[in-house]
């Protein structure tokens, strides 16, 4: 729209009219933001979604060598109860061999800094293009490194969930988790 203001007092102080125009404009701007905010906030996650932002899993029923898949924030989370052999394998891999170097210890530490090497908790989404890798269910192929095999494009993960072979660039992601007791872990 073409500007329509009567020319402001060209010489000397701004007029009362200028003050009123600027003040009204500023207040209208604040009003517009105040009106827009609820509409934009409306699209944020609702209370029922937020309630599922954090889940508690009882791991006491997972035997050594077994794994389960939990659902957290709409994504699969692999919880594997590792055998001593799997732990040793993971710890002995030199970092130079890893595409995304990370020590096994750093991947089994919860948010209270406690290390529980027998529990590996990773997000079960291949970091290549997002398929869910196989290896959690008994009878699943686990690939050459004993972890997980993504059948979509052949990415292979080891017993620490680290990428060893195939097109994926990164290790399986780690969620924030906390063992609230020896058998209860809160994810997220």
């Amino acid at each position: 729209m073409a500007s329509s203001s009567i020319p402001a007092g060209a010489h000397g102080d701004p007029t009362r009219r200028d003050f009123l125009m600027v003040a009204t404009g500023a207040l209208a701007g604040v009003g517009a933001v105040a009106v827009a905010w609820p509409f934009i906030n409306n699209l944020n996650p609702a209370a029922d979604t937020l309630a599922l932002a954090s889940i508690e899993v009882n791991v006491s029923s997972i035997a050594v060598g077994q794994a389960i898949t939990a659902k957290w924030r709409g994504k699969p989370v692999f919880i594997r109860h590792r055998t001593p052999e799997e732990i040793k394998e993971a710890e002995e891999v030199p970092l130079s061999e890893l595409r995304d170097p990370a020590t096994d210890k750093s991947r089994v530490t919860d948010s209270a800094k406690k290390v529980r090497p027998e529990w590996l908790i990773v997000i079960g989404i291949c970091t290549h293009l997002g398929c869910v890798p196989q290896g959690n269910k008994p009878g699943d192929p686990r690939g050459e490194f004993g972890g997980w095999l993504c059948t979509c494009h052949g990415s292979q993960y080891d017993t620490s969930g680290r990428i060893r072979k195939g097109p994926a660039p990164l290790n399986l992601a780690l969620p924030d988790y906390l063992f609230t007791s020896d058998t209860l872990v809160r994810i997220g």
Binding site: N41, N42, A46, A47, D48
Partner: peptide, 13 residues
């Protein structure tokens, strides 16, 4: 009712 209770600013909209 979910809009009224759970959705952010849903009651207002």
């Amino acid at each position: 009712e979910r809009i009224m209770r759970d959705v952010p600013s849903g009651w207002l909209i």
